[in-house]
Design a protein around this nucleic acid. Structure first.
Lengths: 149, 149
DNA sequence: GCTTGACCTTGCCATCATTGGAACCTCCAT
DNA sequence: ATGGAGGTTCCAATGATGGCAAGGTCAAGC
């Protein structure tokens, strides 16, 4: 099966399949005589696994761990559960931080008339860290890069 | 004031101050005879504004808009409020998606014994999209890049 | 057999915010 | 004068993905 077929069947773009292969997340597949990658149903199965884990917010690195767990028939279900629950915690922390930001903004906006006058407590609060509630969490990096939708 | 001082006073790293200047988010400041950037209290004020807006999850691009609104004394408070509320909505959507992922994982984990036996519905569900609840949202990019903590 | 179009290959660039490092220059205190 | 702290520029990397370009390949139709 060509990479395009595998992409359609797995929901992982051809681009990403090649990327996953290049990073070692998934093993190199065989090639046809002319150099085309050749995928088996089993390969597609693995790609679907990756896709679903991505949909659940696991990083590619974490998925590497999940794949290893998947293929290790002797591992305890507790090992998998531990990874899953640890990820749940991370997800919830992120969600809560986003909601805290939203709450702070709502709070600021509540005091803004929202009419055609220029006075705006939102801007003023951003400009002058007065009595406001803007939580500054430490390094917050790439927070905006998360555009899940 | 040197860039290091300005960094400490604003909470924006010197590195990022230079970056913001290079992208035009903040205007170029004056230089001393020897080429050092020289910051006034007003410059630091602006940097603090940027910092606080970043803490609230605004993108650098959005902050550009906020700075323009800040400096436009004739703009209506409604304009600011609109930007803020629109951002609130974005934040809440992201938060909800993260929570949906968490809920799905919790659901899977609920059916996992979490003991030393290998049978694990979490892995099985990832492997075989059976009756599960994994929501696959479309493009979801950079979801993991958001490591807020 | 030749053309056409769809598909594959590799490789490089862009994103977004941020950090790190190298190589070099400047300031200040000893 | 020397050392160290801190400034300057430029380049690279992160993570996951999309996009584009130049070229090879395959299958269908003429």
């Amino acid at each position: 099966m060509n990479i395009g077929m595998a992409a359609r069947a797995s929901g992982v773009s051809a681009k990403m399949i090649r990327y996953y292969e290049s990073t070692g997340l998934i093993p190199k597949v065989g090639r046809t005589g002319s150099g085309y990658r050749d995928y088996s149903d089993k390969d597609v199965h693995k790609l679907r696994f990756v896709r679903r884990a991505r949909d659940l917010g696991f990083s590619v690195e974490q998925i590497g761990g999940l794949l290893r767990l998947w293929e290790d028939r002797s591992r305890a279900s507790a090992d998998v559960k531990q990874v899953a629950m640890s990820h749940v915690e991370t997800l919830r922390e992120r969600a809560q931080q986003l909601e805290e930001m939203a709450a702070t903004l709502i709070h600021l906006a509540d005091h803004c008339a929202g009419d055609d006058r220029p006075d705006c407590p939102i801007i003023e609060e951003l400009a002058a860290p007065g009595r406001g509630h803007v939580h500054h969490q430490g390094h917050h990096h790439g927070l905006n890069a998360s555009k899940p939708g």
